[in-house]
């Protein structure tokens, strides 16, 4: 019995350490955003301040995050890229999922492998290959558009997997029933299949945006002279760090947690929104 207690104790300590490891660095980072210190650190605590969000230093210079115009530009770019990625990834992922779920050829698993390979490819490689290809074939240089394209290579694959999982639960006799009742393929898609896929399309859009928004490794190679939020943070860390970076972190963490919660809710609702169970098995 006491041996079991010892084991239990060990397990709890291990878990506590693990979660402390996960959370404490983030907590420190958040705390430092409110510390009235020139350096982004929690210790020593020099008093609470919101200056790093909006404020002025002793010589009257603006030091707050929101007073920085470049930051606004970077956020704007990130949003644009995220929307672009949604626009590309959702249709592409949907087409891929429909394609893979329908075809019956022997090459299917090979095609599957090709289509999901971007997920298993390091982000820098996706960035580089996109840059090289588009530069030389279409003379498209680094910039927002190329960032959208490069990110979509793997985000579309994530979306495809999401849609594929949903499609597997689709009762295909519904398609046949629609056609049997005289519907064209278009009407069948619009009224029967897409409504069924809608929850997955929604969570796919959220996933695509979040993935795009936080992407660094791929974007770095294809962004050209533009800036995005993640790139901006990285630059600030390397050149001239102030706790304003922590302030960005606080806002981003808040937003991501919000986004993640929305995503999880959508995903759970999608999982629950199964169609009426077939009355009898065929």
């Amino acid at each position: 019995m006491s041996a079991k207690r010892l084991v239990d104790l060990f397990v709890y300590v291990y878990l506590a350490l693990f979660f402390a490891y996960l959370f404490l660095p983030l907590v420190f980072m958040v705390a430092a955003a409110f510390n009235d210190s020139r350096f982004p650190t929690m210790l020593p605590w020099q008093g609470f301040t919101l200056d790093w969000f909006w404020g002025f230093d002793s010589r009257g210079r603006a030091i707050g995050l929101f007073q920085d115009g470049r930051m606004g530009m970077a956020i704007w770019n990130s949003v644009l890229i995220g929307l672009g990625v949604i626009l590309v990834s959702i249709p592409v992922g949907l087409a891929g999922a429909l394609f893979l779920q329908t075809i019956r050829t022997r090459a299917k698993s090979f095609l599957y492998g090709v289509m999901v390979s971007p997920i298993l490819t390091p982000g820098v490689i996706l960035g580089i290959s996109t840059l090289v290809f588009w530069r030389y074939v279409f003379d498209v240089g680094g910039g927002l558009m190329l960032a959208v394209i490069a990110q979509s290579t793997f985000i579309a694959a994530y979306c495809m997997l999401l849609f594929l999982a949903r499609l597997e639960r689709f009762d295909r006799t519904q398609e046949e029933a629609a056609l049997d009742l005289g519907a064209s393929h278009g009407l069948m898609l619009r009224r029967v299949m897409l409504p069924f896929l809608r929850p997955a399309l929604l969570s796919g859009a959220v996933l695509a945006f979040l993935q795009s928004f936080e992407n660094y490794n791929t974007t770095l190679f294809v962004i050209g002279i533009e800036d995005t939020l993640t790139l901006n943070i990285a630059t600030r860390v390397r050149l001239g760090l102030t706790p304003a970076v922590n302030a960005i972190g606080v806002i981003m963490i808040a937003l991501t947690i919000l986004g993640a919660v929305v995503y999880e809710i959508l995903r759970r609702r999608e999982a629950r929104a199964t169609p009426v169970e077939p009355v009898a098995a065929g």
Binding site: T173, A177, A183, V192, F196
Partner: peptide
């Protein structure tokens, strides 16, 4: 055809189900 598993459209109301062929 009335399918072995009925294949009703779960996301439509009953009347929309019935009227689907007319919609088509």
């Amino acid at each position: 055809l009335i399918f072995q598993n009925l294949a009703l459209f779960p996301l439509m109301k009953v009347w929309e189900n019935v009227a689907f062929g007319l919609e088509a």
